[in-house]
Amino acid sequence: MREMPLISVEGVSKRFRFPRTASDILTGRPPAAVHALNNVDLEVYRGETLGIVGESGCGKSTLARCLVRLLEPDEGLVRFDGKDISLLRPGERRAFNRRVQMIFQDPYSSLNPRMSVRQVLSEALSVHAMRPKADIPTRITELLGLVRLPADAADRYPHEFSGGQRQRIGIARALAVEPDVLVADELVSALDVSVQAQVINLLLDLQERLKLTVVFVAHDLRLVRHISHRVAVMYLGKVVEISPTEALFAAPRHPYSKALLDAAPELDPSRRTRVAAARGELPNPLDLPAGCLFNTRCPFAFERCFAERPALSARGPAHFAACHLPDFGNPAPETIAAQ
């Protein structure tokens, strides 16, 4: 029996509708919509890092925004500490906002260009009454030290910082309100490799010291593998596999996870392959395939995959995959799946 999850996502779907066109009205069709999330189930436990990985259009950023309530799901719900976050009263909602913080991808648009670092941090500290007014300057110095920026950074404006330094400011802003959960959406993907490593190190260090729960959303498998305890693989708005990191990387149990792993270039030149890991491209998200969403690209697809959408089912300890082939990728198949 596991502990109660800190965050649980239950059957969440999210659609982005296009404006109704004249032909929609004439034919009586519902307006076209991108299905960004399709019935996502997920749990985040206290103190862990959950990596959410997938390619563009898989819905990972939409999911991150639903977690911090920047977006409302169309169906399903997100619970934080057992409570449905869409039903929070104003006071509770503010507390929720304080406890679950998001850090954004773009170091250039995520900071208000007209506010100095001091203004950004003292606003967060004073609105949430984190410190008495007199203690705010000291706390700002502390926060800057925490993200390893010099104290004289406080009176500067965002344009005076490099991309990596801006991400540190974004982290300091989130940490100012002493959250329980950090949701990091592509935290380092806009940064150079050497700077990425600095920010990842910082995140690992802060998580240990402040006992944070982290949801790390990224497209880079190596990074996700490096920092996550558990990993969820998303494809077209659905979690197709979720598992402890090592189990997933050792033996992915969903054909898409395997393709994604194989496609990521190895850092070892001697392990070069010449066969492309996945064929084809993403289907049109306006018009999703019936059955399994991966069936247009899956080399193992059979009739059932075109008729029925597989649900997540157990593959091992805390390991789930949504595939009609229960023995796919099984390192020790006891029996050949009887069809």
């Binding site: 920047l70 954004f104 995520s110 609105v127 974004g170 309100v177």
Partner: peptide, 16 residues
């Protein structure tokens, strides 16, 4: 822009 979402995520009021 993300900074507006960041402010919403901080739980700031609409007027602010």
């Amino acid at each position: 822009l993300d900074y507006a979402d960041a402010a919403r995520g901080m739980g700031y009021g609409h007027t602010r």
